[in-house]
Amino acid sequence: MPNDFNQQVIEEFRANSGEVGGHFEGARLLLLTTTGARSGERHTTPVGYYHDGDGTVLVIASAGGAPKHPDWFHNLVAHPHVTVETGVFTYDAKAEVLRGGARDAAFARAVEADSGWAEYQARTSRVIPVVALHEIASGGPPNVNASSMSEYVKAIHDAFRRELTLIRGEFDQAGSTLGAQPRINCLTFCQGLHNHHTGEDIAMFPFLADRHPELEPALDRLREEHERIAVLIAELQQVIGMDSADTEHVRAEVERLTTALEAHLTYEEEQLIPVLDVPNESVHREADPTR
């Protein structure tokens, strides 16, 4: 039976490129579509997630500490091939239920980030499962939830802005020692931003330069900004990688990156979106083959 609350969240999520309010406001949320263990029908559920590096994300089958696993967990155990929607990207993934030490370490990391998970575990005698969702390579450009290239660019930029806001908020709430999950979140953000800029440099910018020579000065500036941002990313990664990483030091590096990136994204949108919106322009999604 459809869940009215979930359906409202799903509709809001899809209408706003993954951004929702209410109970899930400010949370990392994805839509997980599974195949019914008995019915064989497709079911979509909004679930919170954690980054796990290398494009993998973790979801926790807590069901609020209920005595039974949620239906979506039973579904993916029976049919591990699932679909993930991030608000910007949609991709197929293979679900892996973590076992033993891998599960315990992932759950401990989640508890460190949000003590509510420990409260859920205390309510039930079952061991709350942790599931890794491994993206299945498609061999082509990413499936982006946008109807035009300008929407595509803006959606990706806004996703970076939202994630950076979440990361900064996590550091504001952290103590003097940097936790494991904020480290992973930050490193995942850095890798995603690097991939995005690489895609622009090798595909979208040359495409635009060929068709709009008047954009060359702006594109040159954007390329130079990519190089400066790459330096900031490397410095942030170096600080995060230190065992004795101080939260204030990391926060300062994140603020430097935030300032540079926001100025860069704003300038890029001002210069490129008007061109991308010109009628009859054909700018293919291959312009950003990485993420």
Results as ranks from 00 to 15, higher is better:
residue 271 Q to K: 12
residue 278 V to E: 15
residue 262 E to P: 00
residue 273 I to M: 08
residue 261 L to G: 04
residue 260 A to C: 12
residue 279 P to L: 10
residue 270 E to W: 05
residue 262 E to F: 09
residue 263 A to P: 04
residue 284 H to K: 10
residue 286 E to H: 09
residue 265 L to Y: 00
residue 276 L to C: 04
residue 260 A to F: 11
residue 286 E to F: 11
residue 286 E to I: 13
residue 288 D to V: 09
residue 269 E to I: 02
residue 272 L to H: 00
residue 267 Y to T: 11
residue 278 V to W: 09
residue 287 A to Y: 02
residue 282 S to D: 13
residue 274 P to L: 07
residue 264 H to K: 06
residue 261 L to C: 06
residue 283 V to R: 01
residue 280 N to K: 15
residue 269 E to H: 02
residue 263 A to V: 10
residue 287 A to I: 06
residue 288 D to Q: 08
residue 281 E to C: 06
residue 274 P to Q: 06
residue 268 E to Y: 02
residue 275 V to Y: 07
residue 261 L to S: 04
residue 290 T to E: 03
residue 288 D to S: 08
residue 281 E to V: 14
residue 280 N to T: 14
residue 283 V to F: 12
residue 263 A to R: 13
residue 260 A to R: 09
residue 289 P to M: 04
residue 279 P to H: 13
residue 282 S to R: 15
residue 276 L to A: 09
residue 271 Q to I: 05
residue 266 T to P: 01
residue 263 A to T: 12
residue 269 E to C: 01
residue 263 A to W: 06
residue 267 Y to A: 14
residue 289 P to V: 03
residue 267 Y to K: 05
residue 274 P to H: 08
residue 265 L to H: 02
residue 288 D to A: 08
residue 268 E to P: 00
residue 279 P to M: 09
residue 288 D to G: 05
residue 277 D to N: 15
residue 279 P to K: 10
residue 264 H to T: 05
residue 266 T to Q: 13
residue 283 V to N: 07
residue 261 L to P: 03
residue 266 T to H: 11
residue 265 L to W: 01
residue 277 D to K: 14
residue 260 A to I: 11
residue 269 E to Q: 08
residue 281 E to P: 02
residue 260 A to V: 13
residue 263 A to Q: 14
residue 275 V to N: 02
residue 260 A to G: 11
residue 285 R to F: 15
residue 275 V to I: 13
residue 288 D to Y: 06
residue 284 H to G: 14
residue 288 D to E: 07
residue 274 P to C: 07
residue 276 L to F: 09
residue 285 R to C: 03
residue 261 L to W: 05
residue 260 A to K: 07
residue 278 V to I: 15
residue 288 D to I: 09
residue 290 T to I: 05
residue 287 A to S: 13
residue 260 A to N: 11
residue 286 E to V: 14
residue 263 A to N: 13
residue 272 L to D: 00
residue 266 T to E: 13
residue 259 T to V: 11
residue 271 Q to G: 02
residue 270 E to S: 09
residue 280 N to I: 11
residue 264 H to Q: 05
residue 289 P to L: 04
residue 273 I to D: 03
residue 281 E to Y: 04
residue 278 V to T: 15
residue 288 D to N: 10
residue 272 L to P: 00
residue 268 E to L: 01
residue 262 E to C: 00
residue 276 L to K: 01
residue 290 T to W: 04
residue 274 P to S: 06
residue 270 E to P: 00
residue 287 A to E: 03
residue 265 L to G: 01
residue 279 P to Y: 14
residue 271 Q to P: 01
residue 277 D to F: 03
residue 262 E to T: 06
residue 261 L to E: 06
residue 283 V to D: 02
residue 290 T to L: 08
residue 284 H to R: 12
residue 261 L to K: 06
residue 276 L to N: 00
residue 269 E to K: 01
residue 264 H to D: 03
residue 289 P to A: 05
residue 282 S to Y: 12
residue 282 S to V: 14
residue 281 E to D: 12
residue 269 E to V: 07
residue 264 H to P: 03
residue 278 V to Y: 09
residue 268 E to W: 02
residue 269 E to N: 04
